[in-house]
């Protein structure tokens, strides 16, 4: 396998909670992202899935350097960027762009669409005014909007159209990696397929790599070559999409996939229901973080943090995952 475009190694993000007379004592920390490692292959799509609050979006913010990394490394094309500043950071952001979930918040209500799309190009300072307006027109065409849309304001567009504009802006700099943070979650189901197809077309056309963050298993299955499953800030399972979907190894992944409605109503697999609430990331359970809701939990799960095991299908962080036979 060729070197990954983005290599994330044991990434951590801790938010210290303020101490104080009526607060929790000092030392309370929210473990938003804990030891997360994954790779985005060049030209491929990596899916990052997990339920709300598992640290998916925090991971995206860390990768975009919108939040400071507590520990760990982010390597982009072999260069460490987790502490990059100044020109290094600029160079990194030149190649990594993003599309966010909420198309209503992604566009400033008082700026014309053309200005919004041109913004990364202006900031990069590589093109003349004429070249920029040409590029904006081209981008609008590429995402399926009319060129004269450039003169309109965001409130004159629907959610789907706005997301197309956000995508046009995201690819304006011809980045190598686009971080898609729940790109279709805010859209109507009927629009989702259009946007996903657009994203796939653009990937082929420009050779983009995607990191697709979603809680929707169908979308991730449809779009991704590889998948990373997160639970409470940690990676519980990672592997190729096909293999993980066919035979998930971690109990959490099993439960997750059993919740998807099958294509055929008679072939409904046994539904695994998770009991109890999601534990607090301030006081995560000892040992395996999933043990409080895991149907297979044993004594060992509370004592030791499970190591990531290569099961032959994927890498799963579970004490009971069976390692692949050593050949």
């Amino acid at each position: 396998m060729t070197a990954p475009l983005l290599d994330v190694v044991r990434l951590k993000k801790h938010y210290p909670l303020p101490g104080g007379m009526f607060r929790r004592g000092p030392g309370s920390v929210v473990h938003a992202v804990e030891d997360v490692s994954f790779q985005v292959p060049s030209g491929g799509t990596l899916g990052l899935i997990g339920e709300s609050g598992c640290g998916k979006s925090t991971t995206a913010k860390l990768l975009l350097r919108l939040e400071d990394v507590s520990d760990g490394a982010i390597r982009f094309d072999g260069t460490e960027v987790q502490r990059a500043t100044g020109p290094q950071l600029r160079a990194y952001r030149r190649n990594v762009q993003a599309v966010f979930q909420d198309p209503y918040s992604s566009l400033s209500p008082r700026r014309r669409i053309g200005d919004a799309i041109a913004e990364p190009l202006i900031a990069a300072g590589e093109l003349t005014k004429e070249q920029i307006s040409e590029r904006v027109a081209e981008l609008l065409r590429v995402v399926g909007l009319r060129e004269d849309a450039a003169n309109l304001y965001p409130h004159e567009f629907s959610g789907g159209q706005r997301q197309r504009i956000a995508i046009a802006r995201g690819i304006a700099l011809r980045p190598r990696l686009v971080i898609l943070d729940e790109p279709v979650s805010a859209l109507d189901v009927s629009i989702r397929a259009q946007i996903l197809n657009l994203l796939q077309d653009l990937q082929e056309r420009y050779g983009l790599s995607y990191l697709l963050i979603s809680h929707d298993l169908d979308i991730v299955s449809h779009m991704c070559t590889d998948v990373v499953v997160m639970y409470l800030g940690r990676v519980v399972e990672a592997g190729s999409m096909k293999a993980v979907r066919r035979s998930p190894q971690h109990p959490y992944t099993k439960a997750l996939f059993s919740s998807v409605l099958p294509a055929h109503p008679d072939r409904r697999p046994e539904r695994i229901k998770l009991l109890g609430p999601l534990p607090s990331p301030i006081n995560p359970p000892s040992g395996c973080v999933f043990r409080t809701r895991c149907p297979h939990a044993q004594a060992i799960c509370a004592e030791q943090v499970p190591a990531s095991v290569d099961t032959g299908v994927s890498r799963a962080a579970c004490h009971f995952a069976t390692p692949a036979a050593v050949s």
């Binding site: 992604s106 566009l107 990364p120």
Partner: peptide, 10 residues
């Protein structure tokens, strides 16, 4: 979002 995106756009 647009402020975060502006930061990402340098």
């Amino acid at each position: 979002g647009y402020v975060s995106l502006a930061r990402v756009a340098n």
